[in-house]
Design a protein around this nucleic acid. Structure first.
Lengths: 346, 346
DNA sequence: TCGTTTTTCTAGAACGATTTAGAAGAACGA
DNA sequence: TCGTTCTTCTAAATCGTTCTAGAAAAACGA
């Protein structure tokens, strides 16, 4: 049963292995009759076509592009923002009948060969929200795999599709400043293991996420007079936003505004308010970042970025030879909804 | 620069290729000093570790499991239900430092070698909501790749992790029957290309989705006296539910209840009602299936199934040798919320 | 009819690793 | 000192394809 290879089929039909290979890959290289005979015999023998690994080895094409995610893979799916990106990427991948290889960034020994990033048979890679200094990115680079990042890197030869994080956040900051907010809490994504049950204050230097840093800088730029307090409730997720907001709302010095560095966190914060009977935009301002689908029904003021297009653009750079642009800056837009309102006079 | 292989490194260091291979894979097979020397030289030469394809070919392990999705890959991500499954699966995959290969089910020639399912270098596969009769599943079977489905198959040797679709739907039907509903519209997922802008009536026989069929059967079982009208607005998605509900709400004979065969569709229906100033549970009953996170805030009555656990269980069967159970039935639960209410007396 | 082009097929060398069986030398116990 | 057991390393086979040349046969133009 097992062990049916190209060769087996070739022998059975009485032709050379090359011909069988051609029957699968280059139908115009042999007569239709023979091809049919080969395919029939193959089917009979239970041969399911050329082995994927062997083909990948010989032809140098894996037929898959890798996707590198921050955090645990399981977390990645909890943010519609990431999902949107993936959907856009998948769209293009589908077009080129290429698969998407989701690679977990296990914290295991990155030097040994046991890592997924090392093991993965991929032709190219999309780097999603992983800082350029991350070892996994280095491995990719060392392997000589073309990659496109969603962050603007420092190297001029690096490909990326990104937004101007600083400018985008500055718009948000200006909006808050105009509304009179000066006392602001920023919910940041903490990559580190968050052991405790409660959120904590974090230093700007502790932040491991490039995007977060840039957005905080942008906020400050947009509202130079404001005092930004950084709080983390753990990984980027609804629950972390909830936890972070709870921590802040139940403390003595409440801010007048809470900024979630992602919409999921901001929505978590809104939930914390709801539980406490507070109305976003009136009692306290909450704003987010990304404009995920859930932001609109929730009335969340946020920065819209074309996430799905971002995924598509990355896919094009990776797969479409017709695409020459290697560095793409996407537009962003401030979307004002009901969750932001004037700061109460103090 | 290019073309640095195991052999190159071996020659540079002055050892055999086997030893270099061992340096990466079996550190205890050679002296620490030599290993270090090899690794150093490799780094110097810009060798990034054993080639993934070659390794996969020789050792027979690809280090990845495939995930087969219905529909277009891009659609898959729009349903939190699918995302939840993926998150559970990713969790286990991560544990075994295995990657997830998302395979698009392109409608392209499935016989030729051009298909992703043919090409994919995977050790095993998770089949998510793809009917067992689908050609891609056959290919997987022909390739001898162990697979676990989310549908209960007919073959006793097939592995699956599923719920009792009929029983679950019957609970929902009973709930509706008790509330006095007899005139029910069911929003079903239509795999076929939905060309038109408007929803259409479909026949039971036209449905290509096993889950849908079973759920409809279950509904009927739970409410034997009811008249079920099947409507499709396209692929399984929010927009389709919206479209389907619009079609029904704007027609002459409105039902007293709408059943979305998935929560996303039910939520779409609720949106259609909201636009028309109708209140779910009072003016019209809407129920769903899955209990995705958005169902709770929306007040949607639905059937809860442990989707994340489903993903985990599939992962365990695929990757964990300690798992022996090959067929797992997951529990379901009727969650009554405000979107369902008594049928108006006619 | 004879060269020439086209079609159809084949031989044999890669592709880049892992694996098996075993050799050479060191360490060991008696 | 000698046989035995480890440790450390190697030679050669193998994984299952695809690819590059080129051969044999068929079709073609004049």
């Amino acid at each position: 049963m097992a062990g049916v290879t190209l060769k087996t089929v070739a022998q059975a039909v009485g032709v050379s292995p090359s011909t069988v290979s051609n029957a699968y890959n280059k139908p115009d290289q042999l007569s239709a009759a023979l091809r049919e005979r080969i395919l029939a015999t193959a089917h009979e023998l239970g041969y399911a076509g050329p082995d994927a690994s062997a083909r990948a080895l010989r032809s140098g094409k894996a037929g898959a592009i890798g996707v590198l995610f921050t955090d645990k893979l399981a977390y990645a799916f909890s943010d519609p923002y990431a999902v949107g990106f993936l959907a856009g990427l998948a769209e293009v991948a589908e077009e080129f009948s290429t698969s998407l290889l989701l690679m977990p960034l296990s914290s295991a020994d990155l030097v040994g060969g046991s890592n997924a990033v090392q093991q993965a048979a991929i032709d190219a890679a999309a780097i999603f929200c992983v800082p350029s200094g991350h070892p996994a990115v280095d491995i990719l680079h060392a392997r000589g795999i073309p990659a496109v990042s969603t962050d603007r890197g420092d190297h001029p030869d690096l490909s990326w599709v990104a937004i101007d994080e600083v400018e985008a956040a500055a718009k948000l900051g200006q909006h808050l400043a105009r509304l009179g907010h000066r006392d602001v809490v920023v919910l940041v994504d903490d990559k580190g293991e968050q052991a405790g049950d409660t959120a904590v204050d974090v230093d700007f230097d502790e932040i491991g996420c490039t995007d977060c840093e840039l957005r905080i800088q942008g906020l400050q730029k947009g509202m130079p007079d404001a005092r930004l307090r950084l709080i983390s409730g753990g990984h980027n997720a609804f629950a972390s936003g909830l936890k972070g907001a709870e921590f802040v709302l139940d403390s003595q010095d409440r801010p007048t505004a809470i900024v979630g560095l992602s919409d999921v966190q901001a929505l978590g914060a809104m939930e914390a308010m709801r539980v406490r009977g507070l109305t976003p935009g009136r009692d306290l301002t909450v704003v987010g970042f990304d404009d995920i689908p859930a932001a609109e029904p929730a009335g969340l003021t946020t920065i819209r970025q074309p996430i799905r297009d971002k995924g598509r653009a990355v896919g094009r750079i990776l797969l479409d030879p017709a695409t020459t642009e290697r560095q793409v800056l996407m537009p962003t837009q401030l979307i004002v909804r009901s969750s932001s309102g004037p700061a109460p006079r103090s």
